[in-house]
């Protein structure tokens, strides 16, 4: 056993968490190694010193208890604590609260106050008032109004649809014109390219013809010279 292995088992030995076989091997090493023996003795001494620290006993005891139930009177007392101290502030707060309560209640009860030619009327009902009975004239007028509104609505819808279609056609025509213009430009470019190519071919042919003619002249000269 090496000293490093022995040291790695010191804690197991010190706290009696070592298995018997490992203990035997470690004890055999300790008998032969004074360094490890001394180190273990030092650790045992530190441990013995630590054991001098007593287990302190707290002088208090924690106890958890369920929170007490609050009575209505307690709630009221707590709520009163939240109110402002000066009387005028309390009065103002009370007035504001009363107004808010009145508005809420009035809204809920559909309160309606009317004044017509010296006649003051207050009406209040929890449900919405029933619709008044319609006379045949009123029915006709209402029907005519409804019809007119419907016709207007259809006309508006139709106009909107037509405008949308016109816009769509305009967009298509613009795109079409753009495409034609692009194709035209492309055609012009192609024709220009073809012209250039033809010119190049023509020039090359001329050169070739020139060369051929030159060669023929030289040949004719050569033949006539030999004939002479």
């Amino acid at each position: 056993m090496t000293c490093d292995t022995a040291r790695s088992q010191f804690m197991d030995l010190l706290y009696n968490e070592i298995d018997p076989t490992a203990r035997q091997a470690l004890e055999a090493h300790l008998q032969t190694c004074a360094g490890c023996r001394n180190e273990l003795a030092g650790l045992q001494e530190a441990r013995a010193l630590l054991q001098q620290l007593p287990q302190a006993k707290p002088e208090w005891q924690m106890v958890f208890s369920a929170p007490p139930r609050r009575s209505l009177a307690q709630w009221w007392r707590d709520a009163r604590e939240l109110l402002p101290r000066p009387r005028w502030a309390r009065a103002a707060l009370g007035l504001a609260a009363a107004m808010v309560a009145f508005i809420v209640l009035a809204s809920l009860a559909n309160l309606r106050v009317t004044y017509d030619a010296g006649r003051f009327e207050v009406r209040m009902h929890l449900l919405r008032p029933p619709a008044p009975e319609l006379t045949p004239e009123m029915q006709q007028a209402l029907l005519a109004q409804l019809r007119s509104e419907t016709m207007d609505f259809i006309a508006q819808l139709h106009a909107a649809e037509r405008a949308e279609q016109d816009e769509k056609i305009d967009r298509m025509l613009t795109a079409f014109a753009r495409d034609i213009e692009r194709l035209e430009r492309q055609r012009e470019a192609d024709l220009l390219l073809i012209g250039q190519e033809l010119e190049e071919i023509h020039r090359a042919t001329n050169i070739q013809f020139g060369e051929t003619s030159q060669m023929l002249q030289q040949l004719v000269r050569h033949i006539s010279y030999q004939g002479r």
Partner: peptide
């Protein structure tokens, strides 16, 4: 292991032993 060794060294510096 290192904790016990450190304690031992500190206490040795202060001349405290068993």
């Amino acid at each position: 292991y290192y904790g016990l060794n450190a304690l031992r060294k500190i206490l040795n510096q202060w001349n405290i032993d068993r």
